[in-house]
């Protein structure tokens, strides 16, 4: 049953993506109030899916690539739903709705089922570790989406080419604020996730395995997020530079993930 709820959520996210894209292509000024309704409906179905999964398997959907991607998609969709409450920020759905939809479709294609006994769920420590880390990644996705829209809108305003992007994208100030809050949430979430993961590893496995690709990637992601955070809040970089650091760091980390997943054999449930 949980798969049906997840599938319905995916359909609603993709329908929202279509509506966002249509308005953007038609050069309309921003998203209307009814476009995010599809996102809200999608989030509701998604939450039902999580509940059904938990009820079926006795654990939240955090372990295994399919469940992880589905949960990440939910957090991104929640970020979008939160942003959409602010009228001027609604248009960020142009990027976030397809991302949430794509991740959920990917999760459905992989299969939203728990992994085997080796990677079995190990109580509340692991749950906190994974959920806070996902909160960190989801926050960063939202921050990077807002930062990339900021850069595009900035380009339009600087070059005085006031086309569809100018019309549809939110104001610079809104994008900057959104990116700022998402960065704070992302950084706090990932820091907490890594700290809990470290403590959890010491508690259950006796120490940190620095050679584990998952650990290396997590440290890389945290470092890139730290740099993006520094660029935004230190006052030493312009807002444009901060946005570039944010988007660039996110791109590098995402690419590293994909490459590691392809190149390194037996990378486990997440990496």
């Amino acid at each position: 049953m949980h798969v049906v709820a997840y599938a319905l959520a995916a359909v609603l996210y993709l329908a929202a993506s279509f509506r966002y894209t249509l308005r953007f292509v038609r050069g309309r000024s921003g998203a209307t109030a009814n476009v995010p309704l599809l996102v809200y409906a999608g989030v509701a179905c998604h939450v039902v899916g999580v509940g059904l999964y938990w009820a079926s398997f006795g654990e939240p959907p955090l372990v295994g690539l399919g469940p992880s991607l589905a949960s990440l998609a939910l957090l991104i969709a929640l970020g979008l739903a939160g942003a959409a409450l602010h009228t001027a920020a609604r248009s960020i759905g142009l990027i976030l709705a397809p991302v949430a939809g794509f991740l959920l479709v990917l999760a459905l294609a992989i299969g939203i089922e728990p992994m085997g006994s080796v990677l079995a769920f190990r109580g509340s420590w692991l749950m906190i570790h994974i959920s806070t880390s996902f909160l960190g990644y989801a926050g960063w996705v939202v921050a990077a989406a807002a930062a990339s829209m900021y850069l595009l809108q900035l380009r339009q305003l600087k070059h005085k080419q006031l086309g569809a992007i100018f019309e549809f994208f939110p104001p610079l100030e809104t994008l900057d604020r959104l990116s700022e809050w998402a960065l704070i949430t992302g950084f706090a979430g990932l820091t907490l996730g890594i700290a809990v993961g470290w403590a959890w590893t010491i508690r259950f496995e006796g120490g940190f395995r620095w050679s584990d690709p998952k650990v290396v990637w997590a440290i890389l992601a945290w470092s890139a997020l730290l740099l993006a955070h520094w660029a935004r809040f230190s006052g030493r970089r312009t807002l444009r530079q901060a946005a570039l650091w944010n988007v660039g760091g996110f791109g590098v980390v995402s690419l590293a993930y994909v490459v590691a997943k392809i190149v390194i054999p037996r990378t486990g449930f997440f990496l």
Partner: peptide, 8 residues
């Protein structure tokens, strides 16, 4: 233009 730069 001002609204696209500063929001409100």
């Amino acid at each position: 233009l001002a609204r696209k730069i500063f929001g409100s």
